[in-house]
Amino acid sequence: MHPALSVILFTTLSGAGYGLLALLGVMAPLDLLPPERGFAFAALGLALGAVTIGLLSSTLHLGRPERAIRAFSQWRSSWLSREGVASVATYLPAGVFGIGWVFYGRTDGVLGLCGVFAAAGAVITVFCTAMIYRSLKPIQRWHNRWVVPNYLALSLATGLLWLVLLLHAFGRPNRVVAALTLLSLVLAAALKLSYWRFIDGSASASTAGTATGLGGLGEVRLFEAPHTSENYLQKEMGFVIARKHAAKLRRIAMLAAFALPFLLTLVAFLAPGVPALVAAAVAAPLATVGVVVERWLFFAEAKHTVTLYYGATHA
């Protein structure tokens, strides 16, 4: 599948933003976070800013972005529509929660409940994003049980990394949050490795033989394509990445998204003061870049059954 930059940016930024929002919405009402308004403003600003930039960038790949509002109408059948509804609905409790915390310094009662609703909305939105891919049967590398856990775990891990940075920036390091971050990175890395192992070890049930129905007569090979230059289908769904490049990018994603942020968070966990702040300040952006690489690969390595009509033997 063609890796469209706008969608990669959207899923990466909104993933981290919703992860952070979910953590804030749950932890602030439980008094696990600094109550200062400055912290609230910075943390909620970062979370909602990332989410908003992500959502806006997602409209860039539309052919008719001026009609984007129509995408909220078909939530009964469409995961994309559900994602849109969930993302916008999340702004309501997040807004009330944010106003209460930032302007009145309160996260109790109804305001705290709004935080929990915002957290639920954040998780549901990321779940819907993952389900858009998970539900596409023609793309076997997306239509499998590893996709949703990977999206949720990466959202949690990147959200936690940004929270660790915020806590250090406000001089309020929290060893529980740092420990949770280390755990979430291990979990996310394990899920990503499992996903890669799955896609390397399994093939689509569809072949050129089933796509044409001619498999019973012998091996099916494309002799002549219908057209001489690439069409929309090949440009959008025929993206092919060389195996050696994919292997290298997987190593880069592993290092940038998981291994290095883990070591840096360990530094932040053990070392006090400035070194911890520097480590946290490197870890969060580095992991976010790592997730961009991971997400690029998620698209680039995905194969669509339409390629079976254009010479591919397996999808």
Partner: peptide
């Protein structure tokens, strides 16, 4: 008149039946 050109339908078709018109911005 309702299509926003998100292209998701073309991803969901195993057979490649849908083609995006980049000039008009709809499927």
């Amino acid at each position: 008149d309702l299509c926003i050109g998100c292209k998701l339908c073309s991803w969901a078709c195993p057979y490649g039946a849908r083609e995006f018109d980049s000039d008009v911005g709809v499927m």
